[in-house]
């Protein structure tokens, strides 16, 4: 077998796969944040907590109701989405006329409350969630071992990300959403129910986080802090990609996951900070982000 800079290819490919998995979560989560920020003007700091909720709802469905992984993949995002809609109606909708900072503070507080509640009832040691039987095991590709579940995570996230992109960029509903992101007053003056559109958008963005949570449950243990750990990196991803762009947030998510993986191979000490270094560089050179529109 060939070697690259003294790195065995198994290690390189293994880390790239791991990077792609992390990138899948970055992409799905930063996509939801971008959609929410675009229309609601809210920096949704509760996103990590809602991702964690998605994983917990899947765990609860299995352990309290005997409902397995596949139904949970649909049900948990729906439940988290409805929870998000309740938050939007009761709390967030009062903040739209204020500065971004208020939405950030409110959702940050909500995140702490949600995480605190789960910590109180389930502790922090983490709960196991089994990989579904159909996705147990893996493929031996000759040069590396590919666990089926990890391949599934990458495929599922790609489908969801590009499905969302298609819906926003190519459909009539998406045209309403893009138009309302630019000028909600005028869209309302054409007879469109903009408050309903906003509510459903938040529900959808949050459901994406819930979906990522279900995907994550069998890989990472189901833990009240799982979202808090991830969300900081995801915000860095969003800053690098630029808040405004749907495709930008998707591509940046996968790209930074891979960069992180590569760093783990060539300079493991830097893997925890490489995304933040890139964020600092991007902010210096192109403050609106790689795909952002200057405002």
């Amino acid at each position: 077998m060939f070697e690259l800079l003294g790195i065995p290819p198994q290690a390189l490919l293994g880390q790239l796969l791991l990077g792609l998995i992390n990138g899948s979560f970055y992409a799905v989560l930063s996509l939801g944040l971008a959609v929410i920020f675009g229309l609601l003007n809210i920096i949704n700091f509760a996103h990590g907590a809602l991702y964690m909720m998605g994983a917990f709802v899947a765990w609860m469905l299995l352990n309290y109701a005997g409902i397995g992984y596949w139904p949970a993949l649909i049900l948990a995002p729906l439940i988290v989405g409805v929870f998000g809609i309740v938050l939007e109606r009761l709390l967030l909708s009062r903040l739209y006329h204020l500065d971004h900072l208020y939405g950030l503070l409110l959702t940050f507080g909500l995140a702490l409350i949600i995480q605190g509640l789960f910590r109180n009832y389930y502790g922090i040691s983490g709960l196991p969630y089994r990989i579904p039987d159909a996705l147990a095991g893996g493929y031996n590709l000759g040069f590396m071992f590919l666990p089926k579940y990890r391949a599934w995570v990458v495929v599922a996230s790609l489908v969801v990300c590009f499905g969302t992109w298609f819906m926003i960029e190519k459909t009539r509903l998406g045209a309403y959403l893009r138009a309302a992101t630019e000028n909600p007053v005028l869209v309302g003056a054409f007879g469109v129910n903009v408050p309903l559109l906003i509510m459903l958008t938040y529900g959808f963005g949050v459901a994406l986080a819930g979906f990522a949570g279900v995907l994550a449950a069998p890989i990472y243990s189901v833990n009240p802090n799982m979202g808090a750990d991830l969300i900081i990196v995801v915000f860095a991803v969003v800053v690098i990609g630029g808040m405004g762009s749907i495709m930008g947030s998707i591509l940046t998510g996968y790209f930074l996951g891979l960069i992180e993986g590569l760093t783990r191979v060539f300079y493991p000490e830097g893997s925890a900070v490489v995304i933040f270094v890139i964020m600092a560089l991007v902010l210096l050179v192109k403050p609106e982000g790689l795909f952002g529109r200057a405002t």
């Binding site: 138009a179 992101t181 000028n183 005028l186 309302g188 003056a189 007879g191």
Partner: peptide
């Protein structure tokens, strides 16, 4: 405004309001 629009009134605003995206 959306109810007023549904009665049959439509506006073409001064800044034209063409959606860039």
């Amino acid at each position: 405004p959306r109810q007023i629009a549904r009665l049959g009134i439509a506006i073409c605003p001064e800044e034209r309001g063409i959606f860039a995206a």
